[in-house]
Amino acid sequence: MIGALIKRELRLSLRRGSSVVLPLTFMALFVLLCGLALGGSRPELGPGLLWLAATLSVLLGLERLYQPDQASGALAQLHLAGISSVSIAVAKACAFAISTLLPLLLAAPLLALILGMSGGQITGAMLSLVIGGPALIAYASVSAALLCAQRGSAVLSVLLSAPLLIPVLIFGVEAAQSYPTLGLGAVQFRILAGLSLLALALGGPATAAAISANRGPA
């Protein structure tokens, strides 16, 4: 069942095209602008910029996550078909990760080259994005689900998820920076993984509860 939901989500985002291309373009443009504003290649800022770019691109896609299915009544129909809110939350989060985070991860090494990062730094940044990614997705889905019945609430959903993302951002960057010297064993990676697990444990039920609370017409 979750597989069918994921397939539908992926199909919809691929058809729209913009939902894959736009975050990628945004991320590249952001890194380019940062490079220009900060005076060329700044490898020491690289992990931070990549993390910021990834976070912002994920937040950019929030409105498309639940709002269309809420507006069309598909969420209500899924409920009537006996699909639990948790399954919906899991499927949507997986599809969101595949359609938004995965392309960003693939593009990150190229952007890292623009920033003049070394091989070790690039690997560190990639690994930290992979390990911290679930937390990004989890908190993004919570705020998307909270506001899925509100039109034009993009800024508010960023306001809601940003404070939750601060620890992930901090440890994501710290982990990436410590990778060249300490490798994957760095305590930052362990904390980042812990944050991701906690985010999944909190975000799953919270997203499901928000979907249920938003059921029915406003």
Binding site: I166, I170, A210, A213
Partner: peptide, 30 residues
């Protein structure tokens, strides 16, 4: 922003609880 009172109460409650759990983590991270 949420006009329906009951719904607003539930959504606000979810927001508040998640925020509360995260405050110590934010403090620790910073």
């Amino acid at each position: 922003v949420v006009s329906d009172r009951k719904r607003a109460a539930r959504l606000a409650a979810i927001t508040a609880m998640i925020g509360w759990i995260n405050i110590p983590i934010i403090k620790f991270s910073v």
